[in-house]
Amino acid sequence: MSDYNWFSDQAVEVAVDGLEKEAEKWHELAGRMRKVSQAAQGQSLQATAFAVTDAMTGAVTAMDLKAAYDTVYEWLNSLFAQAAQEFDSMGDALTKNAKWYANADADVAQNFDAIASS
């Protein structure tokens, strides 16, 4: 068993700093993904974009292609929006863990005091 002090000021400080930096990265990624989501929402196409020159099947083909495009368009837009939320959630979780580590010494001291005084 190692005698490394996992709750030393240096170890806790490094953990907190690392977690806070990672949290910032995830929040930045969430902001970037929100921009992607907003840009993608403006990429819808009209049925005329899928028009085929064949008079017999052109209208049917264009509508089929438009329906397929709309399905993928809606799916991707929902994924982009969800990604922004998930990235923010990851950043929030890392921030929460950083705060826990920052308070770890105080928590351990309080637990020890409670045990010692009982």
Rank of each mutant, 00 (worst) to 15 (best):
M1R: 03
M1K: 06
S2H: 06
D3F: 13
Y4C: 04
Y4T: 15
N5T: 12
W6L: 08
F7Y: 04
F7R: 00
F7C: 03
D9Q: 14
A11L: 03
V12G: 00
V14C: 01
A15Q: 00
V16G: 01
V16D: 02
V16T: 02
G18A: 01
E20R: 13
A23F: 03
A23R: 00
A23M: 07
E24P: 00
E24F: 03
K25C: 05
W26L: 06
E28L: 06
E28K: 13
L29Y: 09
L29D: 06
L29R: 02
M33T: 12
K35Y: 10
V36L: 11
S37R: 10
Q38I: 09
A39Y: 10
A39I: 15
A40R: 13
Q43W: 09
S44N: 13
L45F: 12
Q46W: 12
A47R: 13
F50L: 14
F50I: 14
F50G: 08
A51M: 14
A51W: 15
A51F: 12
V52S: 11
T53H: 09
T53L: 08
T53F: 11
D54K: 03
D54A: 07
D54W: 05
M56H: 10
T57R: 01
T57Y: 04
G58E: 00
G58M: 01
A59Y: 02
T61Q: 08
T61G: 03
A62D: 10
M63V: 04
D64F: 11
L65M: 15
L65Q: 15
A67G: 07
A67W: 11
A67I: 15
A68G: 07
D70P: 05
D70G: 04
D70N: 14
T71V: 12
V72D: 10
V72T: 14
Y73V: 14
Y73N: 14
E74K: 13
E74F: 12
E74Y: 10
E74A: 14
W75L: 15
L76D: 03
N77S: 04
N77T: 10
S78K: 14
L79M: 09
L79W: 08
A83H: 04
A83L: 13
A84F: 07
A84I: 04
Q85A: 11
Q85H: 00
E86W: 06
D88Q: 07
M90P: 00
G91T: 07
L94M: 07
L94K: 04
T95L: 06
K96S: 13
K99P: 00
W100F: 15
Y101D: 02
Y101I: 04
A102H: 07
A104F: 02
A104Q: 04
D105L: 12
D105E: 08
D105A: 07
D107W: 06
D107I: 13
N111L: 12
N111A: 09
F112E: 05
F112K: 06
A114S: 01
I115Y: 06
A116R: 08
A116D: 11
S117M: 13
S117P: 07
